[in-house]
């Protein structure tokens, strides 16, 4: 291909932010996690924050591998415990910017408790939850976010459990910033990540991402491109929508936007205040 030959020496613009020695990554063709990483990298670039002070923590699963591809100090921890691990990092060194990127199964299912409590404490973390409606790495099991009645390998006759509404859970538990975008809303997603990043406290950005391998194949939804096309046609931007209305039904429209943006005292502030008070006493 002549284009390559002419300017092959050009570096990919993300080279400084990503571990290009590990690309190609493990995600399947048509998967949206790569897009989320791309948006995240874009956000990092926009922020112009000292990258040495940024830490990325991931759990387990397809999205759990994100940490390995981002060229900051990065940790790939155990299943569901990314937020707990990140809490330790943040409290150990409050100057750091800690970002948790993980999947829906990791953050909301097994890590649900840590999610709720980190939000309650309002620990200064940015959580990017890539939601692909399924446990993909283990081969397509039903996840707490799987819509009714999607088919998965452990719901071979259709899912019947009400899916979790990630923004609502985040809001109820006390997150200060909650937004949702699909993997196609690249620029808005990047902007949202920037905003979340700058907000002191627990911020959550949910990214709806296609799983072209397990979710779409078993449900006959076509490949990644078809799912992206579906998001293109069916996502509605509604900022400030009440989180009650954010349930995702099977193949119905997806409301995206920024839903919560508020202020609450962050954990480290409260802790410091308490320690000061304690000393005075």
């Amino acid at each position: 291909m002549e284009t390559i030959n002419t300017i092959q020496e050009q570096k990919h613009p993300m080279d400084d932010l990503l571990r290009m020695d590990r690309i190609p990554h493990i995600w399947c063709p048509g998967c949206g996690i790569g897009n989320a990483v791309s948006a995240f990298a874009e956000a990092l670039r926009k922020l112009e924050y000292d990258l040495d002070k940024v830490v990325v923590v991931s759990g387990i699963g397809c999205t759990g591998r994100v940490a390995g591809y981002i060229k900051t100090d990065s940790f790939h921890t155990t299943h569901g415990r990314a937020i707990a691990f990140a809490t330790g990092i943040k409290l150990g060194n409050p100057d750091l910017k800690v970002i948790v990127i993980s999947g829906d199964g990791d953050l909301v299912s097994i890590g649900g408790n840590h999610f709720v409590h980190a939000a309650r404490r309002n620990i200064d973390l940015t959580v990017i939850c890539v939601n692909n409606f399924i446990y993909a790495m283990t081969g397509g099991q039903v996840a707490p976010t799987t819509p009714i009645p999607a088919y998965t390998t452990t719901s071979p006759f259709g899912n019947f459990e009400a899916p979790a509404n990630v923004p609502q859970l985040a809001e109820a538990a006390g997150a200060v910033y909650v937004a949702r975008w699909t993997a196609l809303h690249m620029r808005r997603l990047a902007d949202s990540i920037v905003e979340a990043f700058n907000r002191p406290g627990f911020s959550v950005v949910e990214v709806i991402s296609p799983c072209a391998m397990y979710y779409s194949r078993i449900n006959k939804l076509g490949d990644g491109l078809d799912m992206m096309q579906f998001y293109y046609n069916n996502s509605i931007i509604r900022h400030g929508e009440s989180t009650d209305n954010l349930n995702i039904d099977y193949q119905k429209e997806i409301i995206v936007g920024k839903f919560v943006d508020r202020e609450r005292p962050a954990f480290s502030e409260s802790l410091n205040e308490w320690l000061r008070k304690d000393q005075v006493e």
Binding site: A84, G88, I89
Partner: peptide
């Protein structure tokens, strides 16, 4: 579970 996870995280910050 999270107590130990947090401890492991904190160690990497130098504490």
């Amino acid at each position: 579970i999270s107590s130990l996870a947090a401890v492991l995280g904190a160690v990497w910050t130098g504490r």
